[in-house]
């Protein structure tokens, strides 16, 4: 501990009426969200229904794919619609299974471990579309949660003009609480990602005369594909370890 830290903390402790800074965790009566929020149950269809409404309200798109093949098809349709020439994608096992562009007229870059940093960032900056696999999607707010890793670069969802996120229906959770619980568990095993990005719709600003404008820094469009079919692979970087939702929920009131 540096001297300045010591004196800074001692100063605060003294103001708070303590001889020296507190070093054991103080008792807390209440932690986190209000009790009713933690105890609420959700209908099994809530997350998807909410996610779709919320994201669409923010100009996003939500495509419901029956299975991997359907998702694969939809990605090609969208890339064509967007006239995408360059695409950058997380080097994710699920995405490798689903995204096939060999015969399309598109340059596809993978955010993979082996490639030099400068090359990857330029590829992301030049890309029309960035494709990610969402670790979680949150129904209540229409939010994607992306965890960074060596194969899951942040630039893929921040630099391209359009962000397409793919995930399975089972990745959908009712509220942010599930994600926070997961992060707290990861904390106990020193496994919190270097970045957790909650993304709710496209980049926006109302800084000019309160006039809403889309895409000031990040993607102009956020489109998502939800695959109904369950996954049967263990994700390689261990981003999912538990099924987040109880299945016996009653309707949320």
């Amino acid at each position: 501990m540096q001297g300045s830290e010591q004196s800074f903390l001692s100063h605060i402790a003294k103001i708070l009426g303590r001889d020296k800074p507190l070093t054991s965790a103080p008792n807390r009566d209440e932690v986190g969200p209000p009790v009713f929020w933690k105890e609420q149950k959700f209908d099994i269809n809530q997350p998807l229904a909410f996610f779709k409404t919320n994201l669409e309200n923010l100009t996003g798109k939500v495509y419901l794919a029956k299975d991997d093949q359907d998702a694969s098809q939809q990605i090609r349709i969208w890339l064509e619609e967007l006239e995408a020439k360059r695409v950058i994608m997380w080097d994710h096992e699920e995405l490798r299974k689903i995204v096939h562009l060999e015969d399309a007229n598109v340059q596809l870059d993978y955010w993979s471990q082996g490639r030099p940093q400068a090359e990857l960032i330029i590829a992301a900056e030049k890309a029309d579309v960035g494709i990610t696999w969402a670790d979680y999607a949150i129904g209540y707010t229409g939010t994607l949660a992306l965890f960074s890793s060596p194969t899951q670069g942040r630039s893929v969802s921040s630099l391209p003009t359009v962000h397409i996120a793919v995930f399975r229906k089972e990745n959908l959770v009712p509220t942010m609480s599930t994600v926070m619980e997961n992060l707290m568990e990861r904390r106990s095993t020193q496994n919190v990602p270097a970045a957790i990005d909650f993304i709710t719709g496209p980049s926006r600003t109302s800084d000019i005369e309160m006039d809403l404008s889309i895409g000031v820094h990040g993607p102009v469009k956020v489109w998502t594909i939800v695959i109904e079919q369950g996954g049967n692979v263990q994700y390689q970087n261990g981003m999912r370890e538990e099924v987040p939702m109880e299945k016996d929920e009653v309707l949320y009131t």
Binding site: Y140, T143, G153, R154, A195, F198, T200
Partner: peptide
């Protein structure tokens, strides 16, 4: 602040980057 359920971005930055990460 703005009546939004969440802002477009909530970035939780747990810097510095991990070994082998290429941004951050």
């Amino acid at each position: 602040a703005t009546g939004q359920k969440l802002t477009s971005y909530i970035s939780v930055v747990n810097a510095p980057r991990k070994v082998n990460e290429k941004d951050g």
